[in-house]
Design a protein around this nucleic acid. Structure first.
Lengths: 132, 132
DNA sequence: AATCATTTTGATAACGATTATCATTATTTT
DNA sequence: AAAATAATGATAATCGTTATCAAAATGATT
């Protein structure tokens, strides 16, 4: 869960903590640059990958292939529109009450939901240990 | 939920029913061709989009941007490895028992899970009605 | 300090799934 | 049958992400 972090990783982590919302890699690139902490895109993607494999941050990938990153602390429940792709963050939504979500957003027409557990499979846990 | 379907849509739907597993668009292209029911890739993507907007099929997008499609009937619960990207389908997993998932796959190291509701937001519901 | 080894970085090329384009073909309507 | 509409498919374009590789930074060793 914890590992020695590069400066880039720390910068990104600090920004994620401050923002307290999910953000894409491209947005991170712009935002860091705006704060005179410019990082190359490649570095950003690398840092995000490392933080993800540690379990420090979590990822959500939209159907257009764009990924959003946030701290792995808070649970996330979204209502996502299949057409425009926009997501509404559901506040205080106890996991597993899909009916609650329906009620909460009366006019949102829910087709289905997906619950996805993320982590490391046995062989990849081993592989990562060997690599480092 | 139901709408007039093109031949392409019906072909794809029939194949999804037969396979009873999630499959990517590219795989669909190969599989249909193997069955002498060749469809162009563009047509496949168009049909999938239409079926998705009807709520007939559901999509799951991996972090590499590749999307998988399946009938919207069954609930899906996965264990996905952050490193290799492979997903393990969890059978008979009552939604919202993340601890159950941990137990079920002892050696899978779970970092987090994401629950995502998919459907149409109010404005897109309206927009689609106007279009057609 | 100086040299060497290792790690990190960033500009850019390459990749790949998806979407847009547009002319052609099928289908429906009049 | 002619005209209008919808569907199709080959291919170009898009765009987020990953790979490449040389340069810069960091750390270790003498």
């Amino acid at each position: 869960m914890s590992a020695p972090k590069t400066d880039s990783q720390q910068q990104i982590l600090a920004l994620l903590k401050q923002l307290n919302r999910e953000i894409s890699a491209q947005e991170l690139y712009v935002e860091l640059r705006r704060r005179s902490q410019s990082l190359g895109l490649a570095t950003i993607y690398r840092a995000l990958k490392a933080l993800k494999l540690e379990g420090t941050i979590q990822t959500r990938t939209l159907s257009n292939g764009e990924s959003f990153y946030s701290l792995a602390e808070a649970e996330q429940h979204y209502l996502t529109c299949l057409n425009c792709g926009k997501s509404i963050l559901l506040e205080n939504c106890p996991i597993c009450q899909e009916s609650a979500a329906s009620r909460e957003q009366e006019h949102f027409k829910i087709y289905y939901h997906i619950l996805d557990f993320f982590g490391l499979c046995p062989s990849c846990q081993h592989q990562i240990h060997v690599e480092s």
